[in-house]
Design a protein around this nucleic acid. Structure first.
Length: 463
DNA sequence: AAAACGATCAACCGCCTTTAC
DNA sequence: CGTAAAGGCGGTTGATCGTTT
């Protein structure tokens, strides 16, 4: 590895050897190319050579420069480590956001993406992305559905007062994973959710959101996985994975290990806005976006959520776009800036949520919007609460359950098991348009940490 | 203080795609 | 159009370093 001064420790086990060895034989074409970490001598030779002769014909470089390396290795070393003005700094939150945007837009075209980050290499960006995906992957449930089911069943047998969910969603990984969630039966039965979910086609959308995942997953794998259990429809809108995956059938569950590098949402021109949902009979995002009305826009209560058909669906991007639109879209409620409009009758048919809504009212089935608001949102929203963990405790929640709020803040190592399941806050977005733009750049890793604290199973935390 | 652990990242391999001839 | 070279990418390994125990 290279330190700041360019010196590197030469590993013992790695196939490093002296510069004499490094250069020996290559000129005469003997032996296989050297592998392993580069020495500072090799770097100096390569740097000098490239500065003199340029970056052409890498295959000839080893011979001409006198290096016992393959041309490919020389090229990589130059591009990733030696090239002038390389930026080895860590990505800023803004850059991370931009990477997310670009990855969604361009796919794994790391070199293309790197073009927007002077000094950063595609490899470093890819490393960041892989790392991020790995962290998110770790956030997935530990137990398969069947095991989780057993756990829940045994748990409910041990404690008959613990409510079970009457619609048989014990396979719900989120639910099952959150093994400590125990809702007293009386309380559970009193929930409007419970009164309505049994017959509501929307409950499947609602419930995953009301059960905050024990561990974070920015890409909401959990939610999607919950949909694969058979109880819940595999609406790809729930899943960033599926949102990002224009190849995957929306009806196919994501099973097993997921590729760390997610396929992007990139699609052909003609597909733009259709989310590539060729196989899905479910509403496309643009139709979804037209249906979304949420407290996120309470600031402009007569407006619909301006979710562009052109954004990637990534929560970061949606939120980002929302912020952009905040300043530009204060008048139009029926047409997004990119020209997408929704029928007026649809607009009128959608109940509006007043800005200072008392969530208690949402619990009242007589309330005009009743509990349907959350399902409408969650069913058509490409992201959910877990995507915005910093909002898990917001003013509504705090107002509703300050104890919960304070407790959560105090007990970083506790999971979200004690969350008020009745709060639509977990399902309805709160993009908090008043949040200062600098907050927007919150590190996505910070989101994870903030949401789940130092969960022992959780994602990596700073040590 | 030292071992264990985990995160990060450089570097490699093999395959695929693009480009030049 | 076919072929070879160059470049790009995904997956993976292993070294290093910081943190925790």
């Amino acid at each position: 590895m290279r330190n700041e001064t360019g010196d590197r420790k030469i590993s013992e086990g790695h196939s490093s050897f002296s510069v004499e060895e490094a250069t020996r034989g290559e000129n005469s074409g003997e032996g296989p190319p050297k592998k392993g970490l580069w020495t500072s001598e090799e770097d100096a030779i390569l740097e000098e050579y490239v500065k003199k002769h340029g970056e052409d014909d890498w295959d000839a470089v080893p011979m001409l420069a006198g290096l016992a390396r393959s041309g490919k290795s020389c090229r990589l070393r130059w591009l990733y480590q030696l090239k002038p003005r390389l930026n080895k700094d860590k990505f800023t939150p803004e850059e991370k956001h931009r990477i997310t945007e670009l990855q969604a837009k361009l796919g794994n075209k790391w070199t293309k993406i790197a073009e927007e980050f002077p000094g950063h290499t595609g490899n470093s960006i890819r490393n960041y992305w892989v790392r991020r995906m790995r962290n998110l992957e770790r956030a997935k449930p530990i137990y398969p559905a069947d095991v989780s089911q057993q756990r829940v069943l045994s748990s409910s047998q041990e404690n008959p007062h613990v409510g079970t969910f009457p619609y048989g969603d014990t396979q719900h990984p989120d639910f099952c994973q959150a093994e400590n969630i125990q809702v007293p039966e009386e309380e559970f039965n009193s929930l409007p959710l419970n009164r309505s979910v049994g017959s509501s086609p929307s409950y499947n959308a609602w419930f995953p959101m009301t059960q905050p995942p024990k561990r974070p997953r920015e890409t909401d794998t959990n939610t999607y996985q919950s949909l694969e259990t058979g109880v819940i429809s595999s609406d790809p809108i729930f899943s960033h994975h599926s949102l990002l995956n224009d190849n995957a059938s929306s009806s196919e569950p994501i099973c097993g290990p997921m590729k760390l590098e997610l396929p992007s949402l990139q699609c052909s021109e003609t597909q733009q806005g259709s989310w590539g949902m060729s196989a899905s009979p479910l509403p496309s995002l643009e139709s979804a976006s037209t249906l979304i009305q949420s407290p996120a826009l309470n600031k402009y209560p007569d407006q619909t959520f301006p979710c562009s058909q052109q954004n990637s669906g990534l929560p970061e991007e949606i939120e980002y776009e929302s912020r952009v639109l905040e300043g530009s879209n204060k008048n139009s409620c029926q047409q997004t800036p990119d020209g997408f409009s929704m029928p007026e009758e649809v607009v009128k048919s959608l109940p509006l949520i007043p800005y200072d809504i008392d969530w208690e009212e949402y619990r009242d089935p007589n309330y005009p919007f009743g509990h349907s608001a959350a399902p409408v949102w969650s069913e058509y929203s490409p992201f959910n609460r877990s995507s915005f963990p910093e909002h898990d405790i917001n003013h509504e929640t705090a107002k509703e359950d300050p104890a919960l709020c304070s407790r959560k803040k105090e007990t970083k190592n506790e999971n979200l098991n004690t969350m008020d399941l009745t709060s639509p806050d977990y399902a309805l977005p709160d993009l908090d348009f008043n949040r200062h733009s600098s907050d927007y750049s919150k590190d996505d890793d910070d989101w994870i940490r903030e949401l789940f604290g130092e969960d022992s199973h959780g994602p990596p935390t700073s040590k």
